[in-house]
Amino acid sequence: MTQRILVVDDDETIQRTLRINLRARGLEVITARDGRTAVQAMEERPDVVVLDLGLPDLDGVEVLRRIRSVSRIPVIVLSARHEADDKVEALDEGADDYVTKPFGMDELMARVRVALRRVDDLPATEAVVTGDFELAFDTHVAHAKGEIIHLTPTEWRMLAVLARHRGRVVPHETILKEVWGPSYGRESNYLRVYANQIRRKIEPNPREPQYLITEPGVGYTLRAS
Protein backbone atom coordinates (compact mmCIF):
# COMPACT_ATOMS: atom_id res chain seq x y z
CA MET A 1 0.00 0.00 0.00
CA THR A 2 1.31 3.48 -0.90
CA GLN A 3 2.29 5.49 2.14
CA ARG A 4 0.63 8.85 2.54
CA ILE A 5 2.22 12.11 3.73
CA LEU A 6 0.29 15.17 4.92
CA VAL A 7 2.24 18.38 4.22
CA VAL A 8 1.00 21.41 6.16
CA ASP A 9 2.59 24.70 5.06
CA ASP A 10 1.18 27.98 3.79
CA ASP A 11 4.24 28.60 1.58
CA GLU A 12 3.22 27.52 -1.91
CA THR A 13 6.83 27.08 -3.05
CA ILE A 14 7.65 24.73 -0.16
CA GLN A 15 4.42 22.81 -0.72
CA ARG A 16 5.18 22.34 -4.41
CA THR A 17 8.80 21.33 -3.76
CA LEU A 18 7.82 18.79 -1.13
CA ARG A 19 5.00 17.43 -3.27
CA ILE A 20 7.37 16.86 -6.23
CA ASN A 21 10.09 15.24 -4.10
CA LEU A 22 7.77 13.03 -2.10
CA ARG A 23 5.86 11.83 -5.16
CA ALA A 24 9.15 11.09 -6.92
CA ARG A 25 9.83 8.67 -4.06
CA GLY A 26 6.54 6.87 -4.59
CA LEU A 27 4.63 8.54 -1.75
CA GLU A 28 1.09 9.89 -1.89
CA VAL A 29 0.89 13.54 -0.82
CA ILE A 30 -1.97 15.44 0.84
CA THR A 31 -1.51 19.19 1.34
CA ALA A 32 -3.03 21.77 3.67
CA ARG A 33 -2.29 25.49 3.84
CA ASP A 34 -3.77 26.19 7.27
CA GLY A 35 -4.28 24.49 10.60
CA ARG A 36 -7.99 23.81 10.36
CA THR A 37 -7.62 22.10 7.00
CA ALA A 38 -4.75 20.06 8.43
CA VAL A 39 -6.86 18.80 11.32
CA GLN A 40 -9.66 17.85 8.90
CA ALA A 41 -7.14 16.06 6.68
CA MET A 42 -6.36 13.66 9.51
CA GLU A 43 -9.56 11.86 8.45
CA GLU A 44 -7.59 10.66 5.40
CA ARG A 45 -5.27 8.72 7.73
CA PRO A 46 -1.82 9.91 6.63
CA ASP A 47 1.22 7.88 7.70
CA VAL A 48 3.38 10.94 8.51
CA VAL A 49 2.67 14.65 8.96
CA VAL A 50 5.15 17.37 7.95
CA LEU A 51 3.90 20.41 9.88
CA ASP A 52 5.00 24.04 9.63
CA LEU A 53 4.59 25.97 12.89
CA GLY A 54 3.91 29.34 11.23
CA LEU A 55 0.37 28.91 9.92
CA PRO A 56 -2.06 31.75 9.13
CA ASP A 57 -4.96 30.66 11.34
CA LEU A 58 -3.84 28.35 14.16
CA ASP A 59 -0.41 28.21 15.76
CA GLY A 60 1.36 25.07 14.62
CA VAL A 61 1.77 23.87 18.20
CA GLU A 62 -2.01 24.00 18.64
CA VAL A 63 -2.41 21.98 15.44
CA LEU A 64 0.07 19.48 16.85
CA ARG A 65 -1.98 19.20 20.05
CA ARG A 66 -5.13 18.52 18.03
CA ILE A 67 -3.36 15.89 15.93
CA ARG A 68 -2.05 14.19 19.07
CA SER A 69 -5.56 14.12 20.53
CA VAL A 70 -6.66 11.78 17.73
CA SER A 71 -3.50 10.08 16.45
CA ARG A 72 -0.04 8.80 17.38
CA ILE A 73 1.40 9.02 13.85
CA PRO A 74 4.86 10.57 13.43
CA VAL A 75 4.92 14.37 13.08
CA ILE A 76 7.94 16.22 11.71
CA VAL A 77 7.81 19.92 12.55
CA LEU A 78 9.16 22.57 10.19
CA SER A 79 9.91 26.01 11.53
CA ALA A 80 11.91 29.17 10.88
CA ARG A 81 12.10 29.58 14.67
CA HIS A 82 15.62 28.82 15.88
CA GLU A 83 15.17 29.19 19.64
CA ALA A 84 15.71 26.05 21.72
CA ASP A 85 12.52 26.75 23.71
CA ASP A 86 10.42 26.47 20.53
CA LYS A 87 11.97 23.09 19.73
CA VAL A 88 11.40 21.84 23.26
CA GLU A 89 7.76 23.00 23.20
CA ALA A 90 7.10 21.20 19.91
CA LEU A 91 8.77 18.01 21.13
CA ASP A 92 6.97 18.23 24.45
CA GLU A 93 3.62 18.42 22.64
CA GLY A 94 4.39 15.21 20.80
CA ALA A 95 6.45 16.09 17.71
CA ASP A 96 8.77 13.28 16.62
CA ASP A 97 11.35 15.48 14.94
CA TYR A 98 12.14 19.15 14.28
CA VAL A 99 13.66 20.62 11.11
CA THR A 100 14.71 24.28 10.99
CA LYS A 101 14.11 26.32 7.85
CA PRO A 102 15.87 26.67 5.48
CA PHE A 103 16.49 22.95 5.18
CA GLY A 104 18.11 20.61 2.68
CA MET A 105 15.69 18.36 0.82
CA ASP A 106 17.95 15.31 1.27
CA GLU A 107 17.94 15.87 5.04
CA LEU A 108 14.16 16.17 5.21
CA MET A 109 13.65 13.11 3.00
CA ALA A 110 15.96 11.11 5.27
CA ARG A 111 13.90 12.12 8.29
CA VAL A 112 10.66 11.22 6.52
CA ARG A 113 12.07 7.75 5.78
CA VAL A 114 13.00 7.29 9.43
CA ALA A 115 9.53 8.41 10.51
CA LEU A 116 7.81 6.01 8.11
CA ARG A 117 9.64 3.00 9.51
CA ARG A 118 9.66 4.19 13.12
CA VAL A 119 7.14 1.69 14.49
CA ASP A 120 7.01 -0.96 11.78
CA ASP A 121 10.65 -1.98 12.16
CA LEU A 122 10.82 -2.21 15.94
CA PRO A 123 13.19 -5.12 16.68
CA ALA A 124 11.79 -7.98 18.69
CA THR A 125 11.78 -6.89 22.30
CA GLU A 126 10.56 -8.84 25.29
CA ALA A 127 7.61 -7.35 27.15
CA VAL A 128 8.29 -5.27 30.23
CA VAL A 129 6.06 -6.06 33.20
CA THR A 130 6.27 -4.22 36.50
CA GLY A 131 3.91 -3.60 39.39
CA ASP A 132 3.00 -0.25 37.85
CA PHE A 133 2.94 -0.74 34.07
CA GLU A 134 3.19 -3.26 31.23
CA LEU A 135 4.69 -2.72 27.79
CA ALA A 136 3.96 -5.23 25.00
CA PHE A 137 6.28 -4.33 22.14
CA ASP A 138 4.88 -6.93 19.74
CA THR A 139 1.38 -5.44 19.83
CA HIS A 140 2.29 -1.85 20.82
CA VAL A 141 -0.12 -2.01 23.75
CA ALA A 142 0.75 -0.40 27.07
CA HIS A 143 -1.08 -0.48 30.39
CA ALA A 144 -0.57 1.47 33.60
CA LYS A 145 -2.71 0.85 36.69
CA GLY A 146 -4.96 -1.39 34.59
CA GLU A 147 -5.70 1.29 31.98
CA ILE A 148 -4.41 1.58 28.43
CA ILE A 149 -1.85 4.35 28.00
CA HIS A 150 -1.07 5.86 24.61
CA LEU A 151 2.57 6.06 23.61
CA THR A 152 3.74 7.85 20.47
CA PRO A 153 5.86 5.94 17.92
CA THR A 154 8.98 7.72 19.16
CA GLU A 155 8.19 6.89 22.78
CA TRP A 156 7.81 3.23 21.82
CA ARG A 157 11.16 3.22 20.04
CA MET A 158 12.97 4.90 22.90
CA LEU A 159 11.49 2.43 25.38
CA ALA A 160 12.36 -0.49 23.08
CA VAL A 161 16.01 0.58 22.98
CA LEU A 162 16.13 0.88 26.76
CA ALA A 163 14.21 -2.38 27.27
CA ARG A 164 16.70 -4.34 25.16
CA HIS A 165 19.42 -3.13 27.53
CA ARG A 166 17.30 -3.04 30.68
CA GLY A 167 19.28 -2.58 33.85
CA ARG A 168 22.22 -1.10 31.96
CA VAL A 169 23.08 2.49 31.07
CA VAL A 170 22.38 3.27 27.40
CA PRO A 171 24.45 6.26 26.19
CA HIS A 172 22.75 9.31 24.70
CA GLU A 173 24.37 8.76 21.30
CA THR A 174 23.21 5.14 21.11
CA ILE A 175 19.60 6.06 21.86
CA LEU A 176 19.58 8.93 19.37
CA LYS A 177 21.02 6.85 16.53
CA GLU A 178 18.70 3.91 17.16
CA VAL A 179 15.54 6.03 17.56
CA TRP A 180 16.08 8.89 15.13
CA GLY A 181 18.74 7.60 12.76
CA PRO A 182 22.49 7.63 12.07
CA SER A 183 22.69 11.39 11.48
CA TYR A 184 21.77 12.03 15.13
CA GLY A 185 24.01 11.91 18.18
CA ARG A 186 24.14 15.32 19.83
CA GLU A 187 20.46 16.18 20.30
CA SER A 188 20.35 15.26 23.99
CA ASN A 189 17.53 17.77 24.48
CA TYR A 190 15.30 15.38 22.50
CA LEU A 191 15.99 12.65 25.02
CA ARG A 192 15.30 14.88 28.01
CA VAL A 193 11.92 15.89 26.61
CA TYR A 194 10.89 12.34 25.72
CA ALA A 195 12.10 10.89 29.00
CA ASN A 196 9.88 13.38 30.84
CA GLN A 197 6.89 12.52 28.63
CA ILE A 198 7.36 8.80 29.19
CA ARG A 199 7.69 9.27 32.95
CA ARG A 200 4.40 11.13 33.06
CA LYS A 201 2.76 8.09 31.49
CA ILE A 202 4.40 5.15 33.30
CA GLU A 203 5.93 6.35 36.56
CA PRO A 204 3.84 6.39 39.79
CA ASN A 205 5.62 9.65 40.69
CA PRO A 206 7.24 11.24 37.60
CA ARG A 207 9.22 13.66 39.76
CA GLU A 208 10.89 10.77 41.57
CA PRO A 209 11.25 8.13 38.84
CA GLN A 210 11.76 4.51 39.83
CA TYR A 211 12.08 2.98 36.38
CA LEU A 212 13.38 5.45 33.78
CA ILE A 213 16.54 6.76 35.37
CA THR A 214 18.74 9.60 34.12
CA GLU A 215 22.47 8.96 34.32
CA PRO A 216 23.71 12.60 34.19
CA GLY A 217 25.98 13.32 31.27
CA VAL A 218 25.91 9.68 30.14
CA GLY A 219 22.49 8.31 29.20
CA TYR A 220 19.42 6.52 30.57
CA THR A 221 18.63 3.25 32.30
CA LEU A 222 15.35 1.31 32.35
CA ARG A 223 15.12 -0.50 35.67
CA ALA A 224 12.55 -3.19 35.08
CA SER A 225 12.33 -6.98 35.04
Rank of each mutant, 00 (worst) to 15 (best):
M1W: 05
L6Q: 08
V7K: 00
V8E: 01
V8K: 00
Q15W: 08
R25D: 11
E28P: 03
R33I: 11
G35P: 04
G35E: 11
A38Q: 11
V39N: 00
Q40I: 13
A41Q: 14
A41K: 13
P46V: 07
V48S: 00
G54V: 01
L55Q: 06
L55E: 09
L58K: 10
D59E: 14
D59T: 07
G60C: 00
I67K: 02
I67Q: 07
S69V: 01
S69R: 12
V70W: 01
I73D: 04
I73F: 08
P74A: 01
V75T: 08
V77T: 02
R81N: 10
L91E: 00
L91A: 01
D92V: 02
G94N: 02
D96N: 14
Y98E: 02
T100A: 12
K101S: 06
F103Q: 09
G104P: 02
D106N: 13
E107W: 08
V112K: 04
V114N: 12
R117V: 11
R118P: 00
A124P: 09
T125I: 11
G131K: 14
F133W: 12
F137E: 12
F137Y: 07
F137C: 10
D138M: 11
D138S: 15
T139H: 11
T139C: 06
T139E: 14
H140I: 06
A144W: 07
G146V: 14
E147G: 05
E147M: 04
I148H: 08
H150F: 10
H150T: 14
L151T: 00
T152Y: 14
P153F: 06
P153R: 03
W156E: 12
R157W: 13
R157Q: 06
M158Y: 02
L159N: 08
A160D: 09
V161L: 06
V161G: 07
L162Q: 06
L162V: 10
V169H: 06
T174C: 02
K177R: 15
E178D: 12
W180E: 06
P182V: 06
S183E: 12
Y184A: 03
G185F: 06
R186V: 02
N189I: 08
N189R: 07
Q197P: 00
R199G: 05
R200V: 02
I202S: 07
E208A: 13
Q210G: 12
T214C: 05
P216W: 03
P216H: 05
Y220G: 01
L222Y: 09
R223M: 10
S225V: 08
S225Y: 06
S225N: 10
